[in-house]
Structures are given as structure tokens and as C-alpha cells.
Design a protein around this nucleic acid. Structure first.
Length: 290
DNA sequence: AAACAGGAACCAC
DNA sequence: GTGGTTCCTGTT
């Protein structure tokens, strides 16, 4: 990878396995919005960034950033230190995944902030992506810090302290439905240090899940998402309806319990289960698999 | 306009 | 620990 400074940003060259659409639309994040020119704009770690990828040229343009933030934030955020070619090579031994990877070849698993991901996925329970995004935007507008930018959506995601001292009635105005209580209670538990996210991040999958399940609004699926998208637990295999459908349809050939799906994934994909899950999820949604 | 989509909590058993 | 029901809101 080559990093060149350009006006107001960076040009990355010799990039493989990176497509903005695949990355931002594979269900792992909610704050990145598609622009008319095919780029995406979003907020993470309190910074606004615009991303445009060109798979043919092998380039990525990062707008509104600099070399220092790239090294501090975005290199890790976009998981540039990982060899996706190797992951794909291993997973492609399976015919279904080979096909799925062709559809989502530019997927990468972002390294997101645990706190934001916890709240985002509490909101995701029994919900759909447009509504989840809207709720997160409203939470940020109401309780986050304003960021310098030209358009809309320019607020950082509020931290746990900010939400813990918020009026619970105000949280309920963010379109989160009955989940507002969970958001508030979880914020309080974390703000008060009752739950230590850094500590949980260090634990192994099963132990970390047990801890995360103590948070109100966090069940098995949400815990698995938090671990995969914000705690680098790449052996996590979150099973939502789409992943359940795609796993049953292509591998098990009958309806089974959530537990059986997870056992299957653990045996079949082992440490790469999380990557397999992302390729399969994106594939299933693209196929509108029923 | 009624039906549907989507995970967790909660309560029986 | 498993199964059924309810929670809220945007879309069809």
C-alpha cells in the first residue's frame, strides 16, 4: 500500500480487497451514508471521513483527513493490517463461500468502538437497517458533540456519560421504540464502571459473551455482533434471520435451532467464522434469499 | 389498512 | 433450558 497526500486528504494505492459499498453495506455499521458519486461519508472516533474506492485501479481516496489520523485511526479502523487475500484463499475451498466472496469481494471487518456498537446493536434488535440508522443519527444529534462539517449528520456518537445523564424521555424520542430503557440502563452501567469494556475485550469468546449478556437489551445475537465488530473476536458467528436462512439453505438443508447453526459454523469455519458470516450475510441479502 | 419484519425480555413449564 | 408471547415503528 502506498499513501499519498492530496488536497484535503489521502490517496491510497495498491489496495486490494476493499470496496466501500461492500464494507459499509454488509450490516456491520450504520453511520455511513452513500453519496451520489458512489463515495460514503461517515463518523467514527469523533471524526468525519469520506471514502471512495476504485477496485479496478486499486485505489481508495480518503477525504477530510491527514496522515496522522490515518496512522492513529483509519489504518486500524479499516483493518489494513490484515491479509484478506489469505482469508479468502482459505474460505474459498468451500464452494458456497467461493461464490459469496465473489459477490462481496471488497468486504472488510471494521474495527469499531465497543460502546457505540453496543448501543447500535441494542437498537438493531427486532429492527431494520434504515430505522436503526435513523435512531443512531438522532441520538448523536441530541446528545453527541457537533463536528465541523458542511452537511448534516455531523455529530459524534455520544459517550456513555453523556447518555447516562440524559433524560430518559429524550432518549425515547429517538425512534428507538421500547428499546430506550435498555439504552439508558446500559449507558448507566457503563458510565458507573459497573461493566468494563476494555476488560471484556481481552476475554475469550465465551467469557466475553457471558459478560456482555449482563447488559440489558443484549442477547446472544447482539453480543456476537459486538464481539465481532468491535472486539476483534473473529471466531464469533452472529446468527440473525439472514444468516440462519443462508446457513440452512446452503449447508444444513433443513430448519434447525440457533444453537445448531452456531455449532455448525464453529466446526466448519473455526477462527474465520466471523469473516464467513459477513460474506454469507451480504450474499444472502443480495439474493434476497427466503 | 391490516399484515409483516426483526431479537430480547419475561414468564410458564 | 425450551417455547410462546409481547414489545415499537416503518414499509408494503
Amino acid at each position: 500500500m502506498k499513501v499519498k497526500e492530496i488536497k484535503n486528504g489521502l490517496l491510497l494505492e495498491d489496495i486490494q480487497h476493499f470496496e466501500a459499498k461492500h464494507i459499509f453495506e454488509c450490516g456491520q455499521c450504520f453511520r455511513w451514508k452513500a453519496e451520489e458519486d458512489g463515495s460514503y461519508t461517515g463518523v467514527a472516533y469523533g471524526k468525519i471521513l469520506n471514502v471512495k474506492s476504485d477496485a479496478e485501479k486499486g485505489t481508495v481516496v480518503l477525504n477530510n483527513t491527514n496522515r496522522s489520523d490515518f496512522e492513529k485511526i483509519w489504518y486500524s479502523y479499516f483493518d489494513f493490517g490484515r491479509d484478506y487475500g489469505k482469508i479468502k484463499e482459505v474460505l474459498s475451498k468451500d464452494e458456497v463461500l467461493k461464490e459469496a466472496i465473489q459477490h462481496g469481494q471488497g468486504i472488510r471487518i471494521l474495527n469499531q468502538e465497543p460502546w457505540e456498537i453496543i448501543i447500535s446493536f441494542i437498537i438493531s434488535a427486532n429492527n431494520n437497517i434504515p430505522r436503526i440508522s435513523k435512531s443512531i443519527d438522532r441520538l448523536s444529534e441530541m446528545f453527541g458533540e457537533p463536528l465541523e462539517c458542511a452537511g448534516k449528520n455531523c455529530y459524534s456518537f455520544p459517550d456513555a456519560t453523556q447518555l447516562a445523564k440524559a433524560d430518559i424521555e429524550q432518549i425515547s424520542l429517538c425512534g428507538t421504540g421500547y428499546r430506550y430503557k435498555y439504552i439508558y440502563q446500559t449507558a448507566r452501567m457503563i458510565a458507573q464502571g459497573e461493566v468494563d469494556l476494555d476488560r471484556i475485550s481481552e476475554l475469550k469468546l465465551e467469557e466475553a459473551r457471558k459478560e456482555l449478556l449482563k447488559l440489558p437489551g443484549v442477547g446472544p445475537k447482539v453480543a456476537d455482533c459486538i464481539m465481532l465488530f468491535a472486539m476483534q473476536k473473529h471466531d464469533s458467528y452472529p446468527v440473525d434471520v439472514w444468516v440462519k436462512r443462508v446457513t440452512e439453505h446452503y449447508y444444513i438443508h433443513q430448519e434447525v435451532s440457533m444453537k445448531q447453526i452456531q455449532e455448525f459454523a464453529r466446526d466448519k469455519f473455526a477462527g474465520l467464522a466471523g469473516f464467513a458470516q459477513q460474506y454469507l450475510f451480504y450474499y444472502a441479502r443480495g439474493q434476497k434469499l427466503k
